[in-house]
């Protein structure tokens, strides 16, 4: 089994991973970071979205060994202690979730979107959510949350 060194939520981990282990499995089964959800396991739903070197990826569609030397960020890494990340707070404030299953992936997708586009339009947010499915909310409040969260992340009044 290959030994890899990967930064996960800013902590360096050296782990022995099976050749065919998925990143989602490394996070959930080995590192016990179960905030990253598996919705479909067929690359469709985005519940497993995490950041690898600052870019959003579906962790069920990347091999763990491929993160050797890279930095992974999961939903668990966003908050600073008890202080929610602005995007997490925005999802709470705007009722951007119901059952919450899609939420970790939604928030990771949203943070990546807002980091690349400080003031996304509604159309850009909807387009940016192409890879994330929600079976509960109808998306409306998710879109509002992301537009508001992006503004807060970039220091404007929300």
């Amino acid at each position: 089994m290959p030994v890899i060194t990967v930064s996960v939520n800013r902590a360096t981990q050296t782990v022995d991973v099976p050749d065919n282990m998925l990143l989602s499995s490394l996070l959930r089964d080995v590192l016990r970071l179960t905030g990253t959800h598996i919705g479909c396991d067929t690359s469709q739903c985005g519940a497993c979205t995490v950041h690898v070197d600052g870019r959003s990826v579906k962790s069920c569609t990347m091999l763990a060994v491929e993160t050797d030397g890279l930095a992974v960020m999961t939903i668990e890494g966003l908050a600073e202690g008890d202080k929610l990340h602005p995007m997490q707070a925005a999802f709470r404030d705007h009722h951007g979730l119901q059952c919450g299953f899609c939420t970790p992936g939604m928030i990771m997708a949203a943070v990546a979107l807002a980091e690349h586009n400080p003031a996304p339009t509604e159309a850009e947010v909807r387009e940016g959510l192409e890879g994330n499915l929600c079976r509960c909310t109808g998306y409306q409040n998710i879109v509002e949350a992301i537009m508001s969260g992006a503004r807060t992340m970039h220091g404007a009044r929300s």
Binding site: S43, G46, T49, V52, R55, S56, V57, K58, T61, M62, A109, A112, L113, G128, E130, G131, N132
Partner: peptide, 9 residues
């Protein structure tokens, strides 16, 4: 193509 996460990989 696809969605942002697919395009990132």
């Amino acid at each position: 193509i696809g969605d942002p996460h697919v395009r990132n990989r």
